[in-house]
Each structure stands twice: as structure tokens, then as C-alpha cells.
Design a protein around this nucleic acid. Structure first.
Length: 466
RNA sequence: GCUCCCUUCGUCUAGAGGCCUAGGACGGAGCCCUCUCAAGGCUUAAACACCGGUUCGAAUCCGGUAGGGAGCGCCA
């Protein structure tokens, strides 16, 4: 039997980090077993579902390269099918019409709560033969009243529910639209899903879904309930925790490889290994190695992984992504250094591409003003002799390359009896405007002779004016 | 309230009765390297929630307690 998994988000918001992890595990599990990964949009809540959210989910998955083998399927396009199955249950005596009003149900729940009981529908319409005049009914599933339903969960283990804890849930509303738990069951059945991998907030729904499946004469799929992902403070993930949308991570300068690698290690491990290529994940991932307990997001570790992929990533890819970020910052890259060369110079000193872009502005734009602290410390009269000597030396440098510049700087420092730092740092401020840049020889080489000398000249003027 | 789930360093985790004076990673601290920032190298602090039981022996098995979480909708 080929494995078929599905990711079934409801389009009421962006693809957040928890959803992305669920999608990743579904995708990994299916691909690991040469099976299919299906995308299904659960948009039965027409009030809250939006087209923009559907697109956001698709975009997020595309960015993370979690490609679906089938779908997206939309539940709103399958309403006829759900009604058909509801009729089937009705005919088979597994479902019935309920005429209770919302007020009546609320009163019942209130009473039960007052008695410290679990609020549940008491099945009062189960035996009703005749319709109640003037009331449009809902359809309820007739849940078994005794016995147990056992979920053999791939991550949580054996979980037993007493059937009498489960009440008769509504499967079709009074406006004739199907409800979530029912759509899921019909879809998982029709789409021949073999493994339902989802968040453990659904664990309590599972016995209900299994019972409906059994009433339909279908063997339930295997279930795997993934633990939740928490915010950095250990509380439930929310907007307050910053980048909730996966696409926000791109905007913040993260690489999809890093996000995926980070997510795969949240709740899953393979010994002590921390870094996984996509191929390794596919080869090594197994649902048996998934943890039972919730895990908190650690932004520092994500940053570390991102830096790792920036340091080791493909230059062309990194250059393209850096270009995207520079563009977002409004930096025109024409006339500046080649982006691949820039990446080479910057990749060891940036945790995100956004940071790299921000630290690279001076290669493309003129310096508007010096960073006050860096200037106060380095662009002083004390620095004048060194900078002037450099001006003379660099103006006549036959070859404007990093090694040649390196030699020239060392020679100048030596002739003046200075440590290289005394020369390099003022020069760095002169050409970059601040105290941080790639190694000074590489910086000058990337900037080019003309710009470097002009900026050195400007710094000298700046010092003279003091 | 009821049902279900969870509990190893700050965080992610290894650990499936003796290999554990509990390992790795991120972050922290310190040192080295160094033209800045980084990167890199080395060193270091830091955890089995608690209480009982089983066993020659428990982080690992069992029971309970405490603490977290989820569900209990004509939401998904």
C-alpha cells in the first residue's frame, strides 16, 4: 500500500511556523516512503476563509519547496459529496435529525456545567420519529454509547477513549453545510489517506472521526499527532512572537534551507545531528523518532543555522537573494561590485541576508554621514599621517587587487612604525562610513580604486576641517 | 468541572535497566587568533519536576502528586 499523507490547513491566516512544520513532516513522511503528499484547503468556514490566505499558504509552501503531489483540493467544492455521505449515514441509521434550538442546547450545557459534568449533547432527538414543525434540523452522527475507541498513535502511543465520553456531533448544519469533523472524515476516506499527521490539538477529535469512518465501513488511517510548537517564552504561539508568517522569515533574511532545517529538529532528531540537507532528511526521517512533548522556538538557533547556510550556500543563490534584499532596501546595485563577490566577502559576517544587505549599502551608495562614534574615534588628527601616507601609496598602486592592497597597507604601516590596526580602522571608516566591514583589503578591492580614493580624500578633508 | 496529552541543562535534544560521576547543539562565560565585525579553535558553567514502588541496579518500568497544555461549538 502506498503511503498517502495530507496537509489540511484552513485558510484563515498565513502559513505559520507550526503549520509549516506539520506540512514538512507530512511531506517528509510521504516522500520517504515513496508515497504521495496531498494538499487540501479546509475552507468550510466561509466567514473566515479568504482567497489571500489561500495564496499565502501556497506561497509559503512554495518558498519552503514543499511540493504537493495532489491538490490543492477545496472543501467548498465538495459540498455535494458531503451531503451524499450524510444521507448514507442517515439511511444506515448512523445519523439522525436533531431539532434542538441553540438556546435549548446552551441551557443544557449550562446545567451540565453547574453539575460539574462535561458539557455534551444528551441525545434527546435520537429516538424522535417526526420532524418538529417550523424548525430546520441539523444532522447528528449517532456515536456508539458504550465500548472504547482506541487510537494507536504513531507518536503518542496507545490512547484509549470511552465512547460514552463522546457525544453525537453535528455533521450537517441547519443551513445544510457540513461541519469540519465530518468533511475531514469524508475527505480522508475519498482521498485514500493512509497516514494522518497533524497537530496534537486534534487528538481529542480522533475517536469521533474514527467512529464515523467505522460507521461508513472504512478502516481508519494511521494517526500521528505532533506536539505543539510554542513561542520563545514557552507560551502558545501568537502574533506577539514576531514572525508568525513563514514568508516573514524570508523578509527577515532567512533562507528556506535554514527554516526547514530548524523546523525538522523541532520534535524530531537523529542522534546528535543538527545539520541536515534535504536529501538527508528524506533518507533519515521517520515518524517513530518524533517527540511527544511540545517545543519552544529558539530564534538564536535559527539564526545560527541561517548563518551556517549563508556560509556554505551556493554563491549564485545567495547573490540572487542578496539582490532581492538590496532591492527591498531601495539600493540600486548597478555600478557596484558583483553580488557574488560581495557575498564571498560578507558571508562569514552575516546572520541574515537582510543584515548582509544592510551592511553592504556603502558599496553602492555614497556615504551620507560617518557613524558618529566610529568617526570620533578614528577620523582624528592622529590618523592624518597614516591616511596621508596611504593616499600617496594607493594613488600609484599598479594593481588594485586585494593581495596588492594587503601588501601596500602592510608596507605603509611598517614604514610608519604603526600596527596595521592603526591604519586599517581609520581607512575603514573613511571608505565604509562606519567601523564594520569585510577585511579592509577586500573592501577596497570591491569598492574599486576610484571610489576608494575619492572617499579617502573626503575623509582627509573632514579631518582637516576639525 | 470532565476527558485526553505532556514533563532530561535557559532552549532544541541524545538516552529504549547497568556503557550516565547524563552526551551533543544553540545561547552564556573565559581564553586563543585578529585590521573592525565576524568566522574559527580551545576551555567552562548549566538538567533527569517531586514522592513512593519494582529490581542486585532506574533518567529509563509501575503508581501517585505537582506543574504545564489541548479538547469539551450549528469554529476549524
Amino acid at each position: 500500500m502506498t503511503v498517502r499523507t495530507r496537509f489540511a490547513p484552513s485558510p484563515t491566516g498565513y502559513l505559520h511556523i507550526g503549520g509549516a512544520r506539520t506540512a514538512l513532516f507530512c511531506w517528509l513522511y510521504a516522500r520517504h516512503h515513496q508515497g504521495q503528499f496531498i494538499l487540501r484547503i479546509e475552507d468550510t468556514d466561509r466567514e473566515r476563509s479568504t482567497e489571500a490566505a489561500v495564496q499565502a499558504i501556497l506561497d509559503g509552501m512554495a518558498w519552503l519547496e514543499l511540493e504537493a503531489d495532489e491538490g490543492p483540493f477545496y472543501q467548498t467544492q465538495r459540498f455535494d459529496r458531503y451531503r451524499e455521505v450524510a444521507q448514507q449515514l442517515l439511511k444506515g441509521g448512523h445519523a439522525y435529525h436533531c431539532y434542538c434550538s441553540k438556546e435549548e442546547l446552551e441551557a443544557m450545557r449550562a446545567e451540565q456545567m453547574a453539575r460539574k459534568e462535561k458539557p455534551r449533547y444528551d441525545g434527546r432527538c435520537r429516538s424522535r420519529k417526526e420532524p418538529k414543525p417550523g424548525v430546520t434540523s441539523v444532522i447528528r452522527f449517532k456515536n456508539p454509547v458504550d465500548g472504547q475507541t482506541v487510537v494507536e498513535d504513531a507518536v503518542k502511543g496507545r490512547v484509549v477513549f470511552d465512547n460514552h465520553e463522546l457525544d453525537d456531533l453535528i455533521i450537517v448544519r441547519s443551513d445544510d453545510t457540513p461541519t469540519y469533523n465530518f468533511c475531514v472524515v469524508v475527505d480522508d476516506m475519498d482521498m485514500r489517506i493512509t497516514h494522518v499527521i497533524r497537530g496534537d490539538d486534534h487528538l481529542n477529535n480522533t475517536p469521533r472521526q474514527m467512529n464515523i469512518l467505522k460507521a461508513l465501513g472504512v478502516t481508519p488511517p494511521r494517526y500521528a499527532h505532533l506536539p505543539m510548537i510554542l513561542g520563545p517564552d514557552g507560551t502558545k504561539l501568537s502574533k506577539r512572537h514576531g514572525a508568525v508568517s513563514v514568508m516573514q522569515y524570508r523578509e527577515d533574511g532567512f533562507l528556506p534551507e535554514a527554516v526547514i532545517n530548524y523546523l525538522v529538529r523541532l520534535g524530531w532528531s537523529h542522534g546528535d545531528q543538527e545539520v541536515f540537507s534535504r536529501e538527508e532528511m528524506l533518507k533519515l526521517f521517520d515518524i517513530d523518532d518524533v517527540n511527544k512533548s511540545a517545543s519552544a522556538i529558539n530564534p538564536q538557533k535559527l539564526l545560527w543555522l541561517n548563518q551556517h547556510y549563508i556560509k556554505s550556500g551556493d554563491l549564485g543563490m545567495l547573490a540572487a537573494e542578496l539582490g532581492w534584499h538590496l532591492e527591498r532596501l531601495g539600493v540600486a546595485t548597478a555600478g557596484g561590485p558583483a553580488l557574488e563577490d560581495l557575498v564571498k566577502a560578507q558571508q562569514e559576517r552575516a546572520k541574515t541576508l537582510k543584515e548582509m544587505a544592510e551592511g553592504s549599502r556603502f558599496f553602492f551608495e555614497e556615504i551620507k554621514e560617518y557613524e558618529p562614534q566610529a568617526a570620533a574615534k578614528n577620523l582624528t588628527k592622529d590618523a592624518l599621517p597614516g591616511l596621508e601616507a596611504l593616499r600617496a601609496k594607493l594613488a600609484t598602486l599598479p594593481e588594485w587587487t586585494a593581495p596588492a592592497l594587503h601588501d601596500a597597507l602592510n608596507a605603509t604601516a611598517e614604514s610608519l612604525g604603526l600596527k596595521l590596526g592603526k591604519l586599517a580602522q581609520p581607512l575603514r571608516v573613511a571608505v565604509s562610513g562606519g567601523g564594520v566591514s569585510p577585511p579592509i583589503d577586500a573592501t577596497l578591492a570591491l569598492l574599486g580604486r576610484e571610489k576608494s580614493l575619492a572617499r579617502l580624500e573626503r575623509a582627509l578633508e573632514y579631518i582637516h576641517k576639525q
